[in-house]
Structure formats: structure tokens, C-alpha cells
């Protein structure tokens, strides 16, 4: 059964089926876009939270760490309630924009939290040294970003992995509509429920391949990350 499904999977892969490849493209597009946006805001937020002293800092950090582990389906539900409630007039339900929004919100705390953790480990000494060398706040933030660059990249990898492998939230807000909002994970979930395991395995293999290629590319930028 497994072997048969795997062979079928490869047949499907090399049949260059239009639907399969449009699903792959949509998954990649939404996940990459969500990761880029979340990386920008997450890096800024993470660094600002870690270098600033404010009254609710501990609580804010706890909140970020809690949201790092939020089940995607719960986040999907929250987004769903918002886009069908106060923001109903935007007509976001079952759209790619809603999927992008859900994935961005899912990835944001992962990147922010990881940057807080890595930055707090190293930032004290770096900032102290920069201060004594005459650096202003912008110099210090720039220096810190450069010094924790490998950790930022690591956080982005984690964020992207979470985005591309996520199913619950995009299923809820995207609706898994054929030729519209169907992505790799929702395709796998649907085919599993119909007993079409070969299609699921094919998509699973592609998902793993994409993850492997992306991690390899990012590791190149990171240098000795996997050494």
C-alpha cells in the first residue's frame, strides 16, 4: 500500500498536473509573503521588546511566548470571528487575503519570541560595549541586528516552516476552495479524508522537498549554521 502510493505519488508529480502546481504555487506565495511581513515586524518588535525597559515587559514577553504555541485552528477561529464580525464589510472570508492574514499572525509571535530569546542572551554585553564606544540608540539597534543575524535567520526559517506546514487556520479562513484557496496542506487533509493517499503522499513529498531546498538555501546564507 505504502509502496504503491509512493509510486503513484511520483507519477502525479511528473505528470505536471496544472491543479497540483497551482496549489504548490499558492502555498509558497502565501507562506513566503506571510513570512516576509512577519519577519519585518517580528524582528523590530523582538529587538525593541528586548532592549527596552517598560512596565509591562514581563507580561508582554509572556504573551508573545504564549502566542508562539497557539494552535493554528484557534488562531484561525479568532481571525474568522474578526473577519466575519467587526471587519465583515471587507469581505475577507474564504479569500487568499484572509489566509495571508492568518499565516502572518501565526508566524509573527514565533519570530518575535525567538528574537527576544536570542537577543536577550547576547544583547546586554553588546549594547554595553556599544554605549561605551559612543553609539546612539539607532547605532545600537543596527549593531544588534547585525550581531544576531544568524538567530534572525533561524527565526525566519522556523516561521516559514510553521507557515507552510499549517493547515487548521487556512482551512478555516480560506475554506479549501478548489482552484482558489486550496493549498498543499488542505489538499493533503482533503485527500486523506477521501482515502486518496497517493495524492496526499505526492503533496507531502513536494512539501518536504520545498522545505529541504529552502533550508539548504538559508543555511548557505547562515554559513556554519548546520556544521
Amino acid at each position: 500500500m505504502i509502496l504503491e502510493s509512493t509510486i503513484k505519488a511520483f507519477e502525479l508529480l511528473f505528470s505536471f498536473d496544472k491543479e497540483i502546481y497551482s496549489i504548490i504555487f499558492l502555498s509558497l506565495a502565501i507562506s513566503i509573503l506571510a513570512t516576509i511581513v512577519a519577519s519585518f515586524f517580528g524582528t523590530l518588535l523582538g529587538i525593541l521588546i528586548s532592549i527596552s525597559d517598560f512596565k509591562l515587559k514581563r507580561f508582554t514577553k509572556k504573551l508573545v511566548f504564549t502566542f508562539m504555541g497557539i494552535p493554528p485552528v484557534v488562531l484561525g477561529l479568532i481571525v474568522l470571528l474578526f473577519i466575519t464580525g467587526p471587519f465583515d464589510n471587507l469581505n475577507l472570508l474564504f479569500t487568499k487575503s484572509a489566509m495571508f492574514l492568518a499565516q502572518t499572525l501565526l508566524v509573527l509571535p514565533i519570530i518575535t519570541g525567538n528574537i527576544i530569546i536570542s537577543s536577550e542572551k547576547t544583547q546586554k554585553k553588546i549594547l554595553e560595549t556599544a554605549t561605551t564606544l559612543g553609539a546612539n540608540k539607532i547605532d545600537k539597534i543596527t549593531l544588534l541586528i547585525k550581531e544576531i543575524k544568524p538567530f534572525i535567520l533561524m527565526s525566519i526559517i522556523l516561521g516559514f516552516s510553521r507557515a507552510i506546514s499549517e493547515v487548521g487556520a487556512v482551512m478555516l479562513v480560506g475554506g479549501n476552495i478548489k482552484n482558489d484557496t486550496r493549498v498543499m496542506t488542505t489538499y493533503i487533509a482533503l485527500n486523506n479524508s477521501m482515502g486518496e493517499y497517493s495524492s496526499s503522499i505526492a503533496m507531502g513529498i513536494i512539501l518536504l522537498l520545498i522545505a529541504f531546498i529552502l533550508h539548504t538555501l538559508l543555511a548557505k546564507f547562515r554559513g556554519d549554521f548546520y556544521d
Partner: peptide, 28 residues
Amino acid sequence: GVITYNSQEAVIFNRSVFENIIYPLKIR
């Protein structure tokens, strides 16, 4: 006057020795 402090454990930035040395010049 302008003061600078050098800690017990040298804090070095992830860049070349030359780039480390010129850091205070660059920010000025």
C-alpha cells in the same frame, strides 16, 4: 571628557578585526 570602558571579558563584534577597531570611528 569622553569616557570609554573596556570590560574584563572582551566583547567582540562578529566582523573582522579591522572592522571592530573602526566601529567607534564609523558611528562618529
